[in-house]
Amino acid sequence: MEAHLIYTSRFSNKFWKISVAKTSFAIIYGRIGTDGTVRVKDFSSPEACKKEAHRLIQSKLKKGYRPHVTAQHEIKESSMTEAHFWQLIDDCKSHGDDALEHVEWLVSRLSEKSVTDIISFDSFLNEHYFKSYTSDLWAAAYIAKGGCSDDGFDYFRAWMLYLGKDAYYEAIADPQSLLPYLKGLKKQEEMPQLEELLSVASDAYEKKTGNDFDDYIKLYDQLMQEDYSVPDIDLDWDEDDEESLRKMFPELWEAFGENPLGT
């Protein structure tokens, strides 16, 4: 359920939009052409949520709001594009001495943007993050680390995104392209993991609004309405079959099979 209303007069030019999903709704309101202000409210049941949403819509209509019908009356759209997403990933590496400082800068930079930009950044991150959930990449992570749990693979894929667009797409096509980066970590005695990148957007949202992670997730679900549930994949390798792993990625095995990262 969704309603997008506008109110225009000689002295006012406003919008009001409500998006309902299950037991909560999100409202965005403000002057037309701006990002607006966002509010999220929870209810005890879907019925109670819909009832209150309907009451609010009727109240707005009685005050003179009308359904949005023309393209010129739009909430300001997010300026976050995929190109801008990757540019921010690249830019963060110029601010700080290590990955954690780079992530801190990214949180700070994002918090200066609109809420819709923050959420759009997270949407791009989630899209690429789930695209990297593949059997081949998990095998590569397993070889490099000498083992890789579910959580370990999550943080490995976050590290992959941190490497940047070109490295990310090359790794999707051929996991052995990660070899130079992994060797670099070996010299620095570090691991291919960056859990902190996964919460950049929610941290930026909290820094900007003062609202917590739960509020952010509700708002994200309301506005994006995406289904990024973890897909089921069949691993086409056996962790106990070293020979099959060696054949899959001989270069990675030569570098880390007997001497994985962290040892």
Rank of each mutant, 00 (worst) to 15 (best):
Y155Q: 03
N211R: 14
Y7E: 10
D166N: 11
A171N: 06
E206Y: 07
D212M: 01
L194E: 02
Y133W: 05
R157D: 00
A3S: 13
K63P: 15
I119D: 05
W16C: 11
E2H: 04
L163Y: 12
E2A: 04
D236E: 09
R39H: 15
L182H: 11
I6C: 06
P180L: 01
L163Q: 06
L5T: 10
K218E: 05
L137C: 02
E170L: 02
T34K: 02
S12L: 08
M160K: 11
A141F: 06
T116W: 09
M1T: 10
D221V: 03
D136R: 14
D174W: 11
K60C: 10
M224H: 12
L197E: 07
Y29H: 14
G257R: 02
F11H: 05
T37Q: 11
Q72T: 10
L161H: 04
G36E: 05
I6M: 01
E82D: 04
K14H: 12
G257I: 06
E77K: 10
A158G: 05
K131W: 03
L182Q: 15
R109L: 06
D174I: 08
I32C: 03
L252Y: 07
T23G: 02
P250K: 02
L61W: 04
K186A: 11
Y228N: 13
H73A: 08
A201Q: 09
D221I: 07
K207V: 09
F156M: 02
Y169S: 03
L182C: 05
P192L: 00
A144E: 15
N259K: 15
E254Y: 06
E47Q: 10
E47V: 12
V230H: 02
S78I: 04
A204H: 06
I32A: 05
K183T: 01
R55W: 13
G152S: 00
W138F: 05
Y216W: 09
I32T: 02
H54M: 15
R157G: 01
L197M: 13
L198R: 15
H54P: 07
Y65F: 07
K51D: 15
I172H: 04
V103E: 03
S44C: 12
S94L: 08
L137R: 04
M191A: 04
F130C: 01
T70K: 12
T209C: 00
L161D: 06
S114H: 03
Q72V: 10
I18L: 14
E258C: 09
S111P: 14
G146D: 14
W159T: 03
K60R: 13
K208P: 02
F156A: 04
M224N: 07
K186P: 09
M160I: 12
L261P: 13
T8Q: 14
N126C: 15
E239Q: 12
L163V: 05
K51G: 12
V230Q: 05
H68F: 06
E226G: 12
H128E: 13
R55E: 14
A71P: 15
Y7I: 09
E226S: 12
Q222P: 08
A201K: 13
K183D: 06
Y205L: 01
E226I: 12
D117Q: 03
G210D: 03
F153M: 00
E47P: 08
S111I: 02
P46N: 00
